[in-house]
Write a protein that binds this DNA or RNA. Structure first.
Lengths: 347, 347
DNA sequence: TTGTAAGCGTTATCAA
DNA sequence: TTGATAACGCTTACAA
């Protein structure tokens, strides 16, 4: 391994000089600079960042804790983080909690993971990361899950914190649901069924609010018969879809709070020979890969996952640069993706 | 920040002693040990791994370079790496090349990425990773892409190297295609069409060999009319599917070399009102998420992605532990996933 | 413009 | 069983 000292020796200068030319600090004569550069090239010198980090007390490394990298939202978010990090010369130390393999989607058992998360954080702190980005599998409050026994900034994304000193990056799902509902209303739909996620979910409430606002603004009454409580899974979409389709007064459109449940609805329609979109419109939320493969292709809402990653990393960089006026909470816009599962109401 | 020195001072011992108790090296009296441990707890001491790494010249950190984390195979492989790394106390420094965003799937333009890869490797080397795992987006030779201007071990997965000094972990796709073809033959199919990937692809040749072997072993003649060259994309499956279905002597089964093209075939069948699986069987390869959402659900071959990650990391750990007899090439078994797109031939 | 040297937080050798 | 201390590779006052 060739060190800075080796370069200095071979170039006949001091280590300080070499350091100066590496970092472009200090005033180095162009003669000397060239000589040093040549030797560096000749010996294929690669600076030792761990030595440097020890000295300067910064690693330019961000710890990224992802609750489960195999969940659909994670790769895109990480990709966004990478794209911004790359531009600013940061590296990513990745910790994958793998919580899905550990506890499935029983988020109430998350306390089992507290130790896991704590040791993940401690490990990152020991590795001297400059900050931590925490990526959830589901938007919910994780404040008490992530220990704050250190002074590194934490950015939460696809989850949130109530801590005043940390930051969260999420998406405007209330607005998105509002726009989706409005879109259907403008297409003449008046009987809008809603299949929600689990009742204790933050997302469920957000999206319900968006749905409701669109109804209210259009003087439509919320019909409780049209509101079904699902659990985010395909099966529940199927089951509740069947129920909705067997109502005397059938809805003309069904809004499922995610693509999985929308898929279930589509299956229910197929089974009951209800044509989508001619007889009924159905929409989802998330724009997961499956939405493109459903028959018909699903109209849905695309999450700004990559942007969430970028924004998280941007916040981090801003914080590390002591930029002022960094907002604690960012909400990024979703995008309405129009495909073939929606048609104008011809009732 | 509390350092080992602080602990030593407060506990009234030397730094050496503290280091001994932290690392369980040396013989420390239980009195002293307890005292030190107490102080560590009291001050919430977190060892500084970068200082440690500088001294011991190991970081227990593996650099993972992934060509594109948003491609379907990557998250599972990374997950496998994590699961093994966690057990053995290794961290992952993740570099995402994002080549899909950069060059799409024009792998012939990969040379554009050479600089990118080189700087990624250099960055990891500078951060003093103990080794590198390289995850491709497509199984192909990447030997000349990844510089070897260092002495760290490299493991290639979902791609391969011809370098004698490095390692590759892949899957048995020839065997898998053989088994799939055999499976169809045993169901009475004799007219087995094949939609291949691009002709210059290693995978295409592997899978073709598996297909061919099954034919030969069953005394079936390879009918060139049934062999179509696709490009891995949905569209080509659709187009070639149409061609196959319009043949006078239609095949009774179509094997697509990936799920995407199989999806295209399914669409072609739908369009021509050919019932799957009653009129024709169709199978894919990869077991991507979409395979589960197709109608009918696709019989396909599941890649051992997670195991590939684990195996890659296991090899790495073995190498770092100087274990002997590490094989250069591992091929992991795939799994035949039987779903609803295949039926016995009733011709 | 360049060099000297202390020090970052550890580990590990050697001595006590 | 414990302690002094040099060293890991680098940065950065400060001096020259």
């Amino acid at each position: 391994m060739v060190t800075l000292k080796d370069i200095a020796a071979k170039a006949g200068v001091s280590t300080a000089t070499v350091s100066y030319v590496i970092n472009n600090t200090g005033n180095i004569g162009s003669e000397t600079r060239k000589k040093v550069l040549d030797v560096m090239n000749e010996l294929d010198y690669k600076p030792n960042h761990v030595a440097r980090s020890l000295k300067v007390k910064r690693t330019r490394t961000i710890g990224v804790i992802v609750e489960d990298i195999t969940i659909f939202n994670s790769p895109e978010i990480i990709d966004g983080i990478n794209s911004y990090a790359e531009k600013y010369g940061f590296s990513i130390l990745l910790t994958n909690l793998r919580i899905f393999k550990r506890i499935g989607n029983k988020f109430n058992e998350m306390d089992k993971c507290k130790d896991l998360i704590e040791s993940a954080v401690n490990e990152l702190i020991s590795k001297q990361v400059d900050g931590i980005i925490y990526i959830g599998v589901h938007v919910r409050d994780v404040t008490k899950l992530v220990p704050k026994n250190h002074d590194k900034p934490i950015i939460y994304t696809y989850c949130y914190t109530t801590s005043e000193t940390d930051y969260t990056v999420n998406f405007e799902d209330q607005l998105a649901t509002y726009e989706m509902t409005k879109y259907l209303i403008e297409l003449g739909h008046r009987k809008l069924a809603l299949i929600t996620g689990l009742n204790d979910s933050f997302l469920t409430h957000q999206r319900f609010a968006g749905y409701n606002r669109a109804l209210v603004e259009n003087q439509l009454l919320l019909n409780p018969v049209y509101i079904k409580t699902g659990d985010w899974e395909y099966e529940s979409g199927y089951k509740l879809g069947l129920e909705l389709l067997q109502l005397k007064d059938k809805p003309t459109a069904i809004i499922a709070m995610n693509d999985l449940m929308a898929g279930g609805v589509l299956e229910a329609c197929r089974e009951l020979k209800v044509n989508v979109p001619d007889d009924i419109s159905v929409v989802g939320f998330d724009d997961r890969e499956c939405a493109l493969y459903y028959l018909p292709q699903l109209t849905t809402i695309r999450l700004p996952l990559s942007k969430m990653g970028e924004q998280s990393m941007k916040k981090m960089v801003d914080i590390l640069n002591n930029k002022r006026e960094i907002e604690n909470i960012s909400r990024l816009k979703c995008e309405l993706i129009k495909r073939n599962s929606v048609a104008a109401n011809k009732g």
